[in-house]
Design a binder for these strands. Structure first.
Lengths: 126, 126
DNA sequence: TACATTCGAAACCTATTGGTTTCATGAAAA
DNA sequence: TTTTCATGAAACCAATAGGTTTCGAATGTA
């Protein structure tokens, strides 16, 4: 009764380059299937399948207008992706990494002296 | 001679939940294969394959220490992901979307009157 | 009404993916 | 020097992914 079981999650949905192109195309405007598929070097059916995958992940919605089905972008689920990658930002952004180390040092951790820190970061004892 | 052909890109690499867990685990510290695989309900070989996929995408690096191979996170390639998703942020963030429309309207586009705009946004003529 | 358009569903095919088990090898330890 | 440990490589397998073609059902149009 609620949302249909999301067979595909956002990570899977964007893994395919064709599907990323689809999102890019639909970002501009709502489009019917035949117009969409005319932009790709594969059959309409194949494109339609990709659209269904995106829909399953909540990234597009369809709406029927006469005999055509128009798809449009729903970007909100990409927020999950943004949040996911945000966590890892500290590992490539030096400023964030430094801040994190300071916070951890002040948090009660021993080894608060950063003088021995190397690029590989604080390595817990194995 | 340069970097090995990246058979897997970042989007594919993070599509698998096991591989995302691997990244999370390696974020903390560098770890050898057997310790890594002990955290997963599958064979060491399977985990090793996932690690190779991540390595192919540049997300981890391996280094041999004695008879063990230690893996560590390389977060930088995730920047591509961040940039990709940043583009779509305007489509779920109302403030950004409004700003974009204003910029486009001032840019020389006709139809600068937003009075007829609906939630579906400016639909170019099909 | 007859015809063309738009699309979904189904059946099918092949390559890839994600997993397994087995075996060989190099390093550490007894 | 045996033996044990950590690992990679190879062969294999089942399920899935990504594509195709064919067919039928609605909808719009002549």
């Amino acid at each position: 009764m609620t949302a249909a079981a999301p067979k595909y999650d956002v990570f899977q949905a964007i893994a395919d380059p064709t599907r990323r192109q689809l999102l890019h195309l639909l970002a501009e405007q709502e489009l019917p299937v035949n117009v969409i598929s005319s932009n790709f070097p594969m059959s309409r059916t194949a494109v339609s399948k990709h659209l269904h995958v995106l829909e399953s992940a909540g990234l597009v919605t369809e709406r029927k207008i006469g005999r055509e089905t128009r798809y449009s972008l729903q970007a909100a689920p990409l927020r999950e992706l943004k949040d996911w990658v945000a966590y890892y930002e500290q590992f490539w952004d030096n400023k964030l990494a430094l801040l994190k180390h300071l916070v951890e040092a002040a948090d009660g951790g021993t080894n608060a002296d950063p003088s021995q820190s190397s690029m590989s970061g604080p390595l817990k004892p194995l």
